[in-house]
């Protein structure tokens, strides 16, 4: 498992900025008066991937498959149960975020920031725009108010907001504008890695494109590296260099965007693509639904977690958990039958 990833990380061009190996996060299920642990929700269960500097890794999957938990583990907003999160810091040293003591983690914080799904919950309603956007600088040692005010004005312009808004409180802004404020705050410390957890899912359709364009422009200007989490394949396709597909706490497939969408190798990826409603009434019949439901991560099936729904399942799938393997250059799949299956991608439409 991890050995495969390690080999390929070395063989690929461009050094990974982030290398996640065997990441696990189990949430205990507690019951009774003394809150005894009776089981675990395997929210993230042996996840492996890497992100190269300057690229966008899209992370897709259905609700509850562990996307948010993965992204929070990477930023140590939650403590992982196991695994390594190797990050190549600005200083050049590679550190394991999963094991870093709190004090060193705090020193690393400016390099990695997060954008949240719900723009109404991610801004403190009691602070005005200046306080919100300048707080990262304040807690990281820039105490001069005028210096911070200049930088806040610059950041607001950068994300397309008027600097005059500085005295306003979040209640004065719509969802799209709030998301811009969240982005400005994330950029205040000049981060290298930005984790965006469904940044456009809660926005109105006509506003999503604005924020997507902004994220693309900022990446180009500021040389940012993104981990972009979404449940919407179209959005992920639009913004990502490479895409990772998650299913019940595990990575099913990782590949460069075009390869993944044109020649998916994992039956789940193909099923996900077939289920996407295409915004064209002329390509209707293509929508082939997958049968059954996503299993609970507290009680996953044996072997390949996808086998109860997989149209290609064989005996081996019920017993053995498939490992993530590189079956073509840069194309990693966790499926016993990945090499033999011919699956339809998007271009087949």
């Amino acid at each position: 498992m991890t050995s495969n990833t390690e080999q390929t990380t070395n063989s690929t061009n461009g050094h990974p900025l982030l290398d996640v190996k065997g990441l696990k996060k189990y949430f205990p299920i507690k019951k009774g008066f003394f809150k005894k642990t009776v089981g675990h929700v395997r929210a993230v269960d042996d996840v492996n991937f890497f992100i190269r500097e300057g690229e966008t890794l899209g992370l897709v999957g259905e609700s509850g498959c562990g996307k948010t938990t993965t992204s929070r583990c990477i930023l140590r907003a939650v403590d992982p149960t196991g695994g390594r999160v190797l990050y190549r810091a600005k200083s050049g040293a590679t550190v394991d975020i999963a094991q870093l003591p709190a004090s060193e983690m705090r020193r690393l914080r400016p390099e990695m920031q997060m954008i949240f799904q719900d723009p109404f919950a991610s801004l403190n309603p009691r602070m005005n725009l200046f306080d919100i956007v300048s707080e990262p600088m304040f807690v990281n040692g820039i105490k001069s108010r005028s210096e911070r005010a200049d930088r806040v004005a610059e950041l607001l312009q950068l994300v397309g907001l008027r600097p005059e808004y500085m005295q306003r409180f979040p209640h004065a802004f719509s969802g799209g504008q709030r998301q811009r404020i969240v982005i400005a705050r994330a950029l205040a410390l000049k981060p290298r890695l930005v984790v965006a957890d469904e940044p456009v899912s809660a926005l109105d359709v006509s506003v999503q494109a604005q924020v997507l364009n902004l994220l693309l422009d900022l990446q180009e200007q500021l040389k940012l590296t993104y981990l972009f989490v979404a449940h919407d394949l179209s959005v992920v396709k639009h913004i990502s260099t490479r895409v990772a597909v998650m299913y019940v706490g595990k990575i099913a497939e990782i590949a460069p965007t075009d390869a993944l969408f044109n020649t998916p190798k994992h039956p789940y990826t193909a099923a996900l693509m077939a289920a996407v409603p295409v915004a064209d009434p002329r390509v209707r019949s293509k929508m082939i639904p997958l049968q059954g439901d996503v299993p609970s991560p507290a009680n996953p099936p044996s072997g390949c977690y996808f086998h109860p729904r997989c149209p290609f399942a064989e005996a081996v799938c019920k017993q053995e958990t498939p490992q993530l393997q590189e079956i073509e250059p840069n194309h990693f799949v966790a499926c016993h039958r990945a090499k033999e299956l011919e699956l339809d991608g998007i271009s087949a439409n």
Binding site: E154, Q157, E164, R178, Q210
Partner: peptide, 20 residues
């Protein structure tokens, strides 16, 4: 750090988008 989305003249007019 020039505004990437639109130039300042084209920024949304103040006060038309309040959420509350």
């Amino acid at each position: 750090l020039a505004p990437p989305v639109s130039d300042p003249q084209n920024l949304p007019p103040t006060g038309d988008e309040a959420a509350v």
